[in-house]
């Protein structure tokens, strides 16, 4: 695969919201090094809903953390509106797989947290937080403690907390992976509705192909060890989409899955080969 093949996404003539340029990351282990990401080039357009899909361990979280500025790439760089990312910042909020809510705060205090860090005054941030709590349909749980909420409710609060920051980009790391199928379907619809309302730029990472196809304007497939951009797929279908029972989405998903299968077989062969030497 030629480098730069996948460098699309930004509309012609405009600075992309995020530009990932030649990002590589290695981890040094006791028995040698592990190349997690290798020369990743991706542009994300303003207001785009981008999904990155790949098998577990292919470097999705690493890539997202690099965009967030929580980890630094070995090579390459990430530009945010043309400026290089050098650390975390409230313009790029991450929503993690585990809710990462603070157990010493109530639901509403959790949502207010980032606003407090920004220096927003007490009254104002309470107002904003209530607005977003309402948006995720959790109005009644304002004063609930974190441990009193179910897994799905926690992720709702986490989503509200991220949205309340009104970040330039929302980074989502398999946020629904731990939920049951019904809650996940519900979230897919609601997240799309919120996205249609706010026009928020989203980078959403998942190992679940049908989730990626359901949510993304564009789906980028990563390879496994090292993580490289393998292919990208455009998904043009009216929203809000259901994650199941839509033939067009299903056919894109099965194309992605067969690519994944090829990838998996290649990896297994290489692993076997390495094992023999």
């Amino acid at each position: 695969m030629k480098k730069g093949d996948s460098k699309t996404g930004a509309r012609e003539g405009r600075v992309p919201k995020i530009s990932i340029q030649g990002v590589s990351k290695e981890f040094h282990m006791k028995d040698g090094k592990l190349s997690a990401l290798d020369g990743i080039d991706i542009d994300v357009g303003e207001g785009e809903f981008l999904c990155i899909v790949g098998p577990s361990g292919c470097g999705k979280s690493t890539l997202l953390n690099i965009i967030a500025g929580l980890q630094m790439p070995e090579k390459g760089r990430v530009l945010m509106g043309g400026k290089e990312v050098r650390g975390p910042g409230p313009d790029r909020v991450v929503m993690f797989q585990e809710s990462a809510l603070f157990p010493w705060l109530t639901a509403i205090q959790n949502i207010e947290f980032g606003l407090k860090m920004k220096g927003v005054g007490k009254e104002e941030r309470r107002g904003i937080a209530l607005h977003y709590l309402n948006l995720v349909n959790l109005k009644r749980f304002e004063n609930s403690l974190v441990h009193e909420l179910s897994g799905g409710m926690k992720q709702r609060v986490a989503l509200a907390r991220a949205l309340a920051m009104e970040p330039e980009v929302l980074l989502m790391d398999e946020p629904f992976a731990a939920l049951d199928a019904q809650s996940r379907d519900q979230f897919h619809i609601e997240l799309q509705q919120i996205w249609m309302k706010t026009g928020q730029t989203i980078v959403f990472v998942t190992h679940n192909v049908s989730e990626a196809v359901c949510l993304g304007d564009r789906v980028i497939l990563l390879t496994y060890r090292p993580g490289r951009v393998k292919k990208e797929f455009r998904v043009e279908y009216p929203r809000p989409r259901e994650s199941r029972g839509v033939p067009k989405l299903g056919s894109i998903a099965s194309r992605i899955l067969s690519e994944l299968r090829v990838e998996f077989e290649r990896y297994m062969k290489e692993a076997l080969h390495d094992g023999r030497n």
Binding site: G69, P88, G89, V94, F96, E98, F102, G114, M117
Partner: peptide
């Protein structure tokens, strides 16, 4: 994960200690 979440929401230095 608490520290990472707080940092992406703009908490740093003393604030990170007091608040998280």
């Amino acid at each position: 994960i608490y520290i990472n979440a707080a940092r992406t929401m703009g908490a740093k230095e003393l604030n990170l200690y007091y608040e998280v």
